[in-house]
Amino acid sequence: MNIFRLTGDLAHLLAIIILLLKIWKTRSCAGISGKSQILFAIVYTTRYLDLVTTYVSAYNTLMKIFFLASSYATLYLIYIKFKATYDHNHDTFRIEFLILPAFILALLINHAFTFLEVLWTFSIYLESVAILPQLFMVSKTGEAESITSHYLFALGSYRALYILNWIYRYATEVHYDLIAIVAGIVQTVLYCDFFYLY
């Protein structure tokens, strides 16, 4: 663990909490893309399957459980509890256009052709583009609420901080994972591009 990874994880945690609190306090999920949240739930589910096979640390286990639980809680709020406030007319991104290419790419480019490894790789590829339905929705409606911008900023910072973490780990442990690094850079560029435009 280093400072970049810890602050990255905390930014990720903060983003999720901002989103949940926003929906809960305003009793509304207006402006939030349910499609992006579906993609994040798929990302966490396919990445954290190793929760039952591999133990890393209490921190690792607790964070994984939190990310899984919060992503399903967010889906529950959007699609069931506050369904009436969900802006589905503006949430029209076709997620199969992200899921299928990410899956095919995971089958072709991975570290090992095993069930867990391919799904882990798929989750990395899918995460890098999972925010697109949300960015598409913001660009369609013209403006994001400030709280939605805070959410996007915290979520974007997380992968940017992970890039610093990967540089640090390369320097100190000579450890690197090209799949995570390339996908992480793509992900960060998408967020930067969005913040540059808006």
């Binding site: 990874r5 990720h12 890393v56 964070m63 994984k64 570290h111 973490n165």
Partner: peptide, 10 residues
Amino acid sequence: ERKLEKKDEL
């Protein structure tokens, strides 16, 4: 490239 045996990142 030395891939992690255990994936310790989130």
